[in-house]
Amino acid sequence: MSLVWRDIAVLSQGGRALALSCFFLVLAASLFPFAVGPDTKLLSAIAPGVHWLLALFLAVLHGERIFVEDEQDGSLEQLRALGFAEGSLMFSRIVAHWVIAFAPQIALTVVVDIFLGAGLASAGQHMLSLLIGTPALSCLAVLAAALTLGARQSSLLMIVIVFPLMIPPLIFGVSAAADSGSAALMLLGASSLISLVIAPLAGHFALKAALK
């Protein structure tokens, strides 16, 4: 637990990373009316997709730096020497990643929905789908970061390997955000739970190889 607090404190950089997430969301959401025109009917129709695409980008944008600095200054090695297993290093990074990338997004769902003319009624549904589904995105982003640690052009490589894996949560997430009655929300929850099992496990071996 102390590890989780430490990672959140270090990676949020005194709240600056969180503020940047908020700024990115408001800015990126306000680009959509320019891109597709200020037609609120169209904008509110694509709102679930906009939320989820922003979530995917937030995941990789924060994911690419999640290990790099701590690997370069030796902190990761130190944490391992303190007896933290690679799996728990993974888990605490996943939690920290989620706090930095997605806690702001969930808080700002209403703002983005107002920008897109989607109204407050659907904002709750959008928020719920993000809440249930974004843990899966954090897991996959952190796992991809662990796999590409030390690679050439690691940030681009990370995006290339992680976006295909994020398609199922994207599909379920958008469906769950658009339609409250469907099974999508449950499938979304299932993808989050599966990712929470697989990512620390696979990341355990990935980090072990990276830190050898």
């Binding site: 796999l147 590409t148 030390g150 690679a151 050439r152 490589l157 390997i161 190889a209 050898k212």
Partner: peptide
């Protein structure tokens, strides 16, 4: 395939690609 080509260390590339 991109994973295989992204590392200068062959063993590291093999490991990352296999996990992927």
């Amino acid at each position: 395939m991109a994973m295989w080509n992204a590392f200068s260390d062959r063993a590291r590339a093999a490991n990352a690609a296999a996990i992927l």
